[in-house]
Simulated scan of single mutants.
Amino acid sequence: MDMEVAVGKYLAYLQNERRYAENTISSYSRELNRYLLYSRDKNLSCCTDHRSFHTQEYLVQKHQTGLRASSLRQSASIIKSFFRYLCRENILSENPVSTLQLPKAKRPLPKILDVDTMNGLLQKDNVEDPLLKRDLALFELAYSSGLRLSELTKTNLSDLDLENGLLRVHGKGSKTRLVPVGKKAINAINSWIRVRKQFASAGETALFLSQRGKRIAPRTVQHRLQQFGIKQGLREHLHPHLLRHSFASHFLESSNNLRAVQECLGHQDISTTQIYTHLNFQALAQSYDTCHPRAKK
């Protein structure tokens, strides 16, 4: 089978059968199209033309451009997944990359803001500006419930159950989950909803709107949050995932319930959530070094 046709079938499979998120499919598509360009350059137009050393050479070329090990690992993982699919569909009888080793990547600990910084950042009284009310509701909800950026912007009015402090979240892979919403976030959301009608276009269902009355774009949220941090004098680059990381770390530190944190974050594998246990141990060690009389040098 022609490689270009095979890639098209694989992407359709991810979208229609595996129900992968749009951003994930875009990432797979970009990587596989780059691999197609390499294949054409090497006259590897047919799926059966490929061997393990071809993929190794492709990854070496990417490495020579200065790509990090984590990015190379992601590239290799996508290509391996693609060829596994071809074998399952009997398009190939043997997997040419079955022995390909993924580059090892040291996973850095996520950065977080401490509780006092978060409280100071979000504490705003007597806010009159409607857009600032929207922004505060966005930021409070992101921190209160640990939402991803895409989950924030996909939230509809109908997803809210503020009376019971719950939110239905549209997560990765078209999966939904219920998460709790804190009192501060509920107050901020109610404050925004009271002025939302000033912006809303007819029939618009999104909770968070742009000035044009349509669903707010992820880029707008990123920009507004970054500018909000700068105005507050925050040295740390403020972005939505920083609020999510802070939520996870603070929740885990207070509850010591890793499974509950996993459920709130929507992680399929608990090993993804376990990185926050390392983060909390790091904070514990620093506290020990600072406070314990026998730890001081």
Rank of each mutant, 00 (worst) to 15 (best):
F199W: 05
A200L: 07
A200C: 05
A202D: 15
A202L: 06
G203Q: 10
G203N: 11
G203H: 10
E204C: 01
E204Q: 13
T205G: 06
A206H: 09
A206I: 02
A206L: 01
A206G: 07
L207C: 01
F208C: 00
F208L: 08
F208Q: 00
L209I: 07
S210Y: 13
R212T: 06
R212N: 14
R212F: 09
G213W: 15
K214R: 15
K214T: 12
K214M: 03
A217L: 11
P218V: 02
P218M: 04
P218R: 05
P218L: 03
R219K: 08
R219V: 12
R219Y: 10
V221A: 02
V221K: 03
Q222K: 12
Q222M: 08
H223E: 13
R224N: 09
R224V: 15
L225F: 14
L225Q: 06
L225G: 07
Q226T: 11
Q226D: 10
Q227M: 14
Q227F: 03
F228H: 11
G229I: 05
G229H: 02
K231W: 00
K231L: 11
Q232Y: 09
G233M: 03
L234V: 05
L234S: 12
L234E: 11
L234H: 05
R235L: 12
H237R: 13
L238Y: 01
H239D: 10
H239K: 01
P240S: 10
P240L: 08
P240R: 10
H241Y: 09
L242C: 04
L243Y: 03
R244S: 11
R244Y: 10
R244G: 13
R244N: 03
H245A: 14
H245V: 12
H245R: 06
F247P: 14
A248D: 13
A248H: 06
A248T: 15
S249A: 15
H250Q: 13
H250R: 07
H250A: 11
F251R: 11
F251C: 07
L252Y: 02
S254Q: 14
S254A: 14
S254W: 04
S255T: 07
N256H: 15
N256Y: 09
N256V: 00
N257F: 04
L258Q: 07
L258M: 13
R259E: 04
R259V: 13
A260H: 00
A260E: 05
V261F: 00
V261H: 00
Q262Y: 07
Q262R: 12
Q262H: 12
C264G: 04
C264M: 15
C264N: 14
C264S: 10
L265N: 04
L265Y: 02
L265F: 02
L265A: 04
G266N: 08
G266H: 06
H267M: 06
H267N: 05
Q268F: 09
Q268S: 15
Q268I: 13
D269Y: 06
D269V: 06
S271E: 08
